[in-house]
Nucleic acid binder design. Structure first.
Lengths: 124, 124
DNA sequence: TTATTTGCAAATCATTTGCCCGAAG
DNA sequence: CTTCGGGCAAATGATTTGCAAATAA
């Protein structure tokens, strides 16, 4: 289905080796250290493919540029509104909300996204 | 502080008269019916001003174009991934998550955003 | 009058796409 | 070979901005 390529392998490696939830341009800069002539378009194309195959998670964030996450489990996120730090919270995800809403409205709920925004310890 | 203008009043009126969480371009089309020569830039400028003064809410949505909401209270949203329908849920907002995270991490939490995605009744 | 707001167009930012070429199978 | 992935640059879509003219106070 999809061929292997040096660029795709390197992009995946970069994402798997950080927990900073990087954006495409940061990933691009890191990959350039190994493949100086890589293009940003290639980075976007491969990030998309890797997300579609379930190897990484595309993190769509309200009002912010997209980020990428090696952690593909369902989890909450915290974002510092001053320094931009973003991290996973290991709070257990409350799925009872989904059932409660589904029961009330008749909707089928597939996904729940919870974002907490505030100030991290350093920025307070 | 801010002057009144026909364009701002009309934009506010349009947002207040719908519960569809419209995007800027839809609001622009509606306002054009009353002020045909209005420009999209003016619509954006006024929506921003109205949000800053607290009269409306700018809804930043993960992976989607911004929408505007006449309901400025803290509330959850549901979005249908097929037809794009977006609506307010009248589920009470659970603020205990904020305290729990704050206690665990030492972060100061200002805002919580909860988005449920799925299929509405018509689209299932 | 004079400070804001408008209309318009150009600028920006993140992301996607078209096309032709090089490389993987 | 033949098809997919890569590089590059141009296109896209949403939103913002600069500026001169229009308008509210």
């Amino acid at each position: 289905m999809s061929r292997k390529s040096k660029q795709r392998d390197t992009i995946l490696k970069v994402v798997m080796n950080t927990d900073t939830h990087p954006r495409a341009d940061w990933i691009y800069e890191q990959v350039k250290k190994e493949i100086p002539h890589i293009s940003l378009g290639t980075v976007y194309r491969n990030l998309k493919a890797l997300a579609e195959s379930g190897e990484i998670l595309q993190l769509e964030i309200a009002g912010e540029t997209r980020r990428y996450d090696r952690n593909t489990d369902s989890h909450y996120h915290f974002r510092c509104r001053k320094c931009g730090l973003m991290l996973d919270l290991d709070e257990p995800v409350d799925h009872t909300i989904e059932d409660r809403i589904a029961g009330k409205t008749g909707f089928k709920i597939n996904r729940q996204r919870v974002e907490l925004t505030g100030l991290c310890r350093e920025c307070q």
